[in-house]
């Protein structure tokens, strides 16, 4: 049985760990609140813009712009995996990495290259020695719109210059503090909206002209969509972190209870032993 001193030392250790997890939980909760506000404000704009463009694209010839062009034979795909920069957020990173691996598994016959957003994913795939063609890491702490712009610039460059046929993004969508949804979204080429009715070819009037409008509108939309993805992922991460740290604090409590009981037992055993020794000693003197 563990000695009293050993148990005492463990109690102190668990208590200080608990202090840390509790602090991290509170920090995550504060960050989550801000991240949640941001994503809720950003969603309507991003969704409307995406829908607008998809509707316009539906009624346009697809060879108008290279970012719109259809690639029916899909040979080369760029998979963008959005993880967090830091760990300690439960299954957040593990889940997204697992689904990225099953994506790779399912599409074995195709040529898939990785683009990693977030340090955790990049480090993981680097250890697996998979080819990572680009990455954007260590920025989630000070997430800015410029980060989305930069990531999009890299991805767009790869798509146009390295002749990818498709860009898919794998990310966590924020649902609530305790729930995230894994999403896969095709980013490029743009997916036109589906129509239920027979396609009515509407001649849009474009100002200044079709190419110029798409040339500014599509990259802008990519930035906004990427911005939304980053915000979604960040809010999800903070939610996952808060939940994980809450569980850790809770577990520390359970552990403390068990340790306290065995500490008291050990103490009681010691006292009993001492008393019986004294009694035994006194009995011995009487004779």
């Amino acid at each position: 049985m563990a000695t009293i001193r050993e148990i005492k030392r463990r109690i102190t250790a668990v208590k200080s760990t608990q202090k840390i997890t509790r602090a991290m939980q509170m920090v995550a909760a504060a960050k989550l609140r801000r991240a949640q506000e941001n994503i809720i404000k950003a969603r309507p704009y991003a969704i409307t813009l995406d829908r607008t463009i998809a509707q316009v694209a539906m009624r346009t010839k697809r060879d108008v712009h290279p970012l719109l062009a259809d690639h029916p034979e899909n040979h080369k795909t760029l998979l963008v995996v959005v993880t967090a920069d830091s760990g300690l957020c439960g299954g957040f990173n593990t889940n997204i990495i697992r689904s990225a691996r099953s994506y790779l598994e399912e599409n074995r016959d195709k040529d898939i290259k990785l683009f990693c957003i977030g340090r955790k994913g990049r480090d993981f795939f680097r250890r697996l020695e998979l080819e990572i063609v680009g990455s954007k890491v260590l920025f989630f702490n000070h997430l800015k719109y410029a980060d989305a712009v930069e990531a999009v610039a890299q991805i767009k460059d790869l798509f146009l210059n390295d002749r990818y046929d498709r860009v898919d993004v794998l990310y966590n969508e924020f649902k609530s503090a305790i729930a995230q949804i894994l999403r896969t979204k095709q980013m490029l080429p743009l997916v036109p909206a589906e129509t239920e009715e027979a396609l009515t070819p509407i001649d849009y009037i474009y100002e200044p002209d079709e190419y110029t409008v798409f040339d500014t509108l599509i990259p802008y939309n990519l930035e906004i969509q990427m911005w939304r993805i980053l915000l979604e992922s960040h809010a999800s991460e903070m939610g996952a972190k808060m939940t994980a740290m809450d569980a850790a604090t809770e577990n520390a409590n359970d552990l403390l209870n068990i340790l306290t009981i065995s500490y008291n037992r050990a103490r009681q055993a010691l006292i009993t032993k001492e008393i019986s020794e004294i009694v035994g000693g006194a009995e011995g003197l009487k004779v």
Partner: peptide, 19 residues
Amino acid sequence: PGAHGEFQILTGHTPFLTS
């Protein structure tokens, strides 16, 4: 305020996309 000058939209306007 369109990129090529201001314009007014009423109901039934023809489809139109502009910066």
